[in-house]
């Protein structure tokens, strides 16, 4: 069996019962963590779908990340805090808790070597932390809410994307702003409704390190009414130039997450007025080569370490795990 996006099918549907917000596989591939509007964090055992849930923050959890050893999970809350939890145990207690930002923390990521943790918040700041929750560096430069943070696998760079469609590249050792990518198509100001809308919802890098992907939305003719379409933008990493726009025409929604697959293609999870989709693109092509409609709108997506499974968090209270290969014969 091997990766075949066109054969993607939903393998598991596990019910939490309350609307889900975020999801993330642990790096060892044993568990899937999800968060919910009921303020709990859930740990799903991939062997049997059993769940352990506990109240975690004073508010919603917007993002989840892990230290590389798979023993510690970090949750980013709308209560200004990041909390470090043990991955296992029936009643996990916080290992550390940090008031990290003023306002929501929308994104958290961990460097490949586990030495640094990055957070991005509504205070327009990006912050770097050590694995014990000690502040290492504060990165100032965004002029809007920070929606996404992403460590380059080489460990030298951090990327952060904001509401206004600006992605900054920071040198992790010094905190110096190296350059910026203009992903302006992912932002709009609606003069009728007088609202800012969009944002760089997620950032990914291709396996060969040559191509960056940013996702979000465009064609926002009615932001308050969710009339918009998902969009993926590809940039050349070396040149810093835009190389392709990948719209998902006809689908109403937001591109919440984008990941590169082992064959170089991308999968984007979208959710919104048009329901939930997994949308597959090839970097050399503008149009998607495959779309899978999900049963309910998706709000987050995580790629399993095996590269063959994606989990999606849904408003209907289900987490769905899809396999991107041919269905096994019964």
């Amino acid at each position: 069996m091997s990766l075949d996006p066109k054969q993607t099918h939903v393998l598991h549907e596990w019910k939490h019962g309350k609307p889900l917000i975020a999801c993330c596989f642990d790096p060892t591939g044993r568990y899937l963590f999800t968060s919910s509007e009921d303020y709990t964090l859930q740990r799903w055992d991939l062997k049997d779908g059993s769940k352990v849930a506990w109240e975690a923050h004073d508010s919603w959890i917007r993002d989840i990340a892990f230290l590389p050893d798979g023993e510690t999970v970090i949750t980013a809350g709308c209560d200004d805090r990041i909390i470090f939890w043990p991955v296992t145990g029936d009643k996990p207690q916080p290992r550390a808790e940090v008031v990290a930002h003023k306002g929501w923390i929308r994104s958290v990521d961990v460097s490949t070597d586990g030495a640094l943790i990055a957070t991005g918040g509504n205070d327009h700041l990006v912050k770097l932390w050590d694995p014990n929750g000690k502040l290492v560096r504060e990165l100032v430069g965004h002029k809007g809410h920070v929606y996404s943070v992403f460590f380059h696998p080489d460990g030298n760079s951090l990327l952060s994307g904001d509401l206004k469609g600006v992605v900054h590249q920071w040198e992790t050792k010094t905190g110096k702003l190296m350059r910026s990518f203009e992903a302006k198509e992912l932002f709009s100001y609606n003069t009728g409704q007088k609202v800012d809308y969009g944002g760089v919802r997620d950032i990914a890098l291709s396996p060969d390190g040559k191509t960056l992907a940013f996702t979000g939305l465009h064609k926002a003719t009615n932001p308050l009414g969710a009339i918009n379409e998902p969009l993926v933008l590809l940039f050349d990493w070396a040149k810093g130039e835009s190389v392709r726009k990948q719209p998902a025409e006809g689908i109403r929604g937001i591109g919440w997450q984008v990941e590169f697959l082992s064959d170089g293609s991308e999968v984007c999870a979208s959710g919104g007025g048009g329901g939930g989709y997994l949308i597959f693109f090839k970097p050399a092509e503008e149009k998607p080569f495959h779309k899978l409609k999900l049963k309910d709108t998706a709000r987050d997506m995580s790629l399993h370490p095996d590269g063959l499974q994606v989990a999606t968090a849904h408003w209907d209270g289900y987490v769905r795990i899809s396999r991107m290969e041919k269905k096994a014969a019964k």
Binding site: N122, Q193, V195, D196, Y197, L224, G225, A226, G272
Partner: peptide
């Protein structure tokens, strides 16, 4: 003051407005 008709992303838009 416009606009609070937030059928979509209520929390982001209320934060802004």
């Amino acid at each position: 003051h416009s606009n609070y008709d937030t059928h979509n992303e209520n929390f982001n838009f209320h934060l802004e407005q």
